[in-house]
Amino acid sequence: MNELMNEQRGADAAAYGTGEGGTADVAVVGGGVAGLAAALNLVRARRSVVVIDAARPRNAPAAHSHGYLTRDGASPLELVDLGRQEVRGYGGRIVEGTVEAVARLDDGRFRLTTRQGAVHLARRVLVATGLVDEYPDVPGLRERWGRDVVHCPYCFGWEHRDRALGVLGSGPGAARQALMWRQWSADVVLFQHTAPAPDEREGARLAALGITVVPGEVAAVEIGDDRVTGVRLASGEVHPRDAIVVGPRFVARHDLLDPLGVEAVEHPLGLGRYVKAEPTGATGVPGVWVAGNTLDLAAGVLQAAASGSTAAAAINADLTEDDAERAVLALAR
């Protein structure tokens, strides 16, 4: 039965698609959960879709994804693999490649060129390429990122509950971050590092919850036996810790969007830089949408997938309007 269903889906896609070298209804740049969720909903709407994925997911170092209803604890790579299977089951195309340029043609279509030399044409483009984490410049952080160097308590808090946690201060939100992580462990130390000293109110809250503030810059994260063992200050003093919490700056990958006139702006809460768009992902530039962390810097896996689905519905509605207008013009000829 499943084989027959997949055959029918493939036949539908062939009937409504364009085939190799043709123009897809939608090109999705980025094959994480946001891009795949969008692609799944679009192919189910009988749209021809090509997903172009560089296969470098941001959360690849993490062993598990958490907070994703019915998939809690699943590997991020497992989620992507399952998503690819579902999209392909409805006739969607997924190709590996790194898109280096997106250009609007005179007829309104988009031409996407990959580093590998491939060219894809599409009527609409959805960019779901995620973001880049800008870490504090401290040796040891990058090597342990996604394991015992973490940033999100909702993603990693349960796994590091009741452990000796060190919060690495790198901005004005460091004290709030330490207070948040206190929910998961009674042993939290705030290393001031480059963050401003807590003000009187923050200091009183930290002290009331038993959070120690250690002044001075951090020189390195100590690592031994494939795990974080502590924090070494510039003074040489070492504080044993089991895991490190950081507050990276998030920067949405917007290089492809800049030449199209899509605006990237600073986040109002100081989280970093994101692409300015409507909640549907519409950028204000006709034919161009964004989803996932490109749109929402704070989105987790579940929220990213939801934003892809939302964008898909908006894109399909836009294509429906375009199809109707084209049909009217065709009859008038």
Score class of each variant (00 low, 15 high):
L206P: 10
L319Y: 06
L190K: 09
P240F: 09
T310M: 13
I223F: 04
G21C: 07
T310G: 13
R253C: 09
V95G: 02
G146Y: 04
D162W: 11
V228H: 06
D258T: 15
E96T: 14
A24V: 02
A291L: 05
G146R: 01
E325V: 11
L190D: 01
D258F: 07
V132P: 00
V150R: 01
V51T: 07
G281C: 07
R249T: 15
G17W: 01
G308W: 04
G166R: 02
A291G: 08
I94W: 03
L209G: 00
S185H: 04
G216Y: 08
G261K: 10
W158Q: 05
L329W: 09
L79Y: 11
L257T: 13
V238H: 04
G32P: 02
G287S: 09
R227Y: 03
P136Q: 13
W145M: 14
D53C: 04
G22E: 05
V127K: 08
R182D: 05
V231G: 15
A122F: 07
E237Y: 07
Q303H: 11
A62D: 06
G140H: 08
G21P: 04
Q192E: 12
R176G: 14
D323W: 14
G247T: 12
I315T: 05
V149H: 06
Q116C: 02
L295H: 15
R333M: 01
A264W: 02
R9K: 13
G10H: 15
W184C: 01
